[in-house]
Amino acid sequence: MSARDVVLGRVRRALADVPREERPEQVPVVRDYLASHSPADPVGMLAEHLADYRALVHRTDAGGLPELIARLLAERGSGSVVVPAGLPKGWLSAVPADTVRRVPDAPSVTAAELDAVDSVVTGCAVAIAETGTIVLDGGPDQGRRRTTLVPDHHVVVVRVPDQVVESVGQALPLLSPVRPLTWISGPSATSDIELDRVEGVHGPRTLEVVLVRE
């Protein structure tokens, strides 16, 4: 007998008390929790909750975005930046090409090469106000998962209010489970030493979130 048959057989014998005719959906699950906690100002709450977790939050409009991104990379002293294939052309237009090397998000770029890159600039799929979360789904303006993981400085652009939802429950239906998803709530952190939170272990230690009003 295969291990599969052994385990499934044990499960079925263990559930001898469950009526044979009972269907899974007949076991009641009451979802009377709130669909959202209805923040008065979701974008404001997103900014506040991101800041709570030491993400650096900036606000601008479409016109000011290129200057802002250029300034953030310059302040960081970045000499190189990973660029997802579908990043809107204008976003890096104010970043000087002679001093900041563009590294494409391509399969040929190894993890070790990414490790030598200073920054990464991406968009996102959706942002959640209540939890202060940015979700990446590998879309063309975000790239492969490792591109937002290995460099130590991540600048992520959120279009507000379009890309902002109030709650986790509102975000899930907008996301496709077929795509690899990364939910980011503040920079890398640990509470492993005496349960004190310390920002910065393996993921990008600096997370800058740019809220662009459209």
């Binding site: 939890t131 986790v168 998803l181 939910w183 980011i184």
Partner: peptide
């Protein structure tokens, strides 16, 4: 926390 820093799916 309201949400842990990273969730992978």
């Amino acid at each position: 926390e309201r949400m842990n820093p990273y969730t992978s799916m």
